[in-house]
């Protein structure tokens, strides 16, 4: 290695801006090592399902193409998946505080690839959450619906929860890491009530119900339950989802671009 006459300036740039499955594998290992995240994304939704979804008083009541237990299982899977993807996105807050994002900026990893890694990682965590709740459903034999609806709702919950990766990224870039987990935990609890994940919106007063229809989990919650309930499809669900996706993504992009122009 006799330098400097051998300097090779024509080195290649990595494909996909440095994104690779190897990185995802290591990120997955980090997730599985984080006990707190696993409790809030796997244990709590499963426990909620076991408490609310198995009550003999109503769990076997028929509801659309399935029963009420299946309906609640999908709600809890959505709750878990949304916490998972939000946490996954909000990891940027911790990584910024640790100086890791700055460190990554002196590697070939492009900022967009970094965001993609966060998205895939949060989806992975969301998948674990959905699978955990669905497996609890299978094991307890209570939820009942056609096989294809298990699959459709599961996939819909999983993919739909990506909306909250954008929310997590937005909060992660906006807030310092000490507060971000509390803020997002509280926000998601509110959104879950507003979306009707815990209590059916029909129990709300008329004005509260109208307000709830504008909260971020409302559209997604209606959409993922549609295969079970059936009935009339409402365009407002899509509008709600797309609207909040636009708000969260532009917020995340705005904070993200500020972050990369700053040091």
């Amino acid at each position: 290695m006799s330098r400097p006459m051998e300097i090779k300036l024509s080195r290649p740039v990595p494909p996909l801006g440095g994104f690779s499955l190897g990185i995802i594998k290591l990120e997955a290992r980090r997730i599985l090592r984080n006990r707190r995240t696993l409790i809030s994304t796997v244990v709590i939704p499963v426990v909620f399902f076991l408490i609310f979804g198995l009550n003999k008083a109503y769990s076997n009541l028929r509801y659309g193409n399935g029963n009420l237990s299946a309906f609640i299982m999908v709600s809890m899977a959505l709750y878990g998946a949304v916490i998972a993807t939000t946490s996954g996105g909000a990891m940027v807050s911790v990584e910024r505080a640790l100086g890791w994002s700055r460190q990554l900026r002196i590697t070939p990893l492009s900022p967009l690839s970094y965001i993609s890694i966060k998205m895939v990682t949060s989806l992975l965590l969301g998948l674990i959450s959905v699978l955990a709740v669905f497996i609890a459903g299978i094991v307890t034999h209570q939820p009942s619906m056609p096989v294809e609806i298990w699959i459709i709702t599961g996939v819909a919950v999983w993919i739909g929860s990506l909306l909250f990766t954008a929310f997590g990224l937005f909060l992660g870039y906006l807030l310092p890491s000490e507060n971000v987990m509390q803020v997002l935990g509280f926000a998601l609890m509110l959104f879950s009530f507003g979306g009707g994940l815990f209590i059916p919106l029909s129990q709300f007063s008329h004005s509260l119900r109208t307000a709830a229809e504008f909260t971020p989990l409302y559209g997604l919650n209606q959409l993922v339950h549609f295969p079970i309930i059936g009935g009339r499809f409402r365009l407002s669900w899509i509008l709600n989802l797309v609207g909040w996706l636009a708000i969260f993504s532009s917020g995340a992009i705005w904070r993200f671009s500020r972050d990369t122009s700053r040091v």
């Binding site: 090592r33 640790l98 100086g99 890791w100 900026r105 002196i106 070939p108």
Partner: peptide, 20 residues
């Protein structure tokens, strides 16, 4: 130059993930 791995840096502090 960064993308090609021509430069690297050792920062003062931080820049490491504690859970790896």
């Amino acid at each position: 130059a960064i993308r090609r791995g021509l430069i690297s840096a050792v920062m003062q502090n931080g820049g490491l993930l504690k859970d790896l």
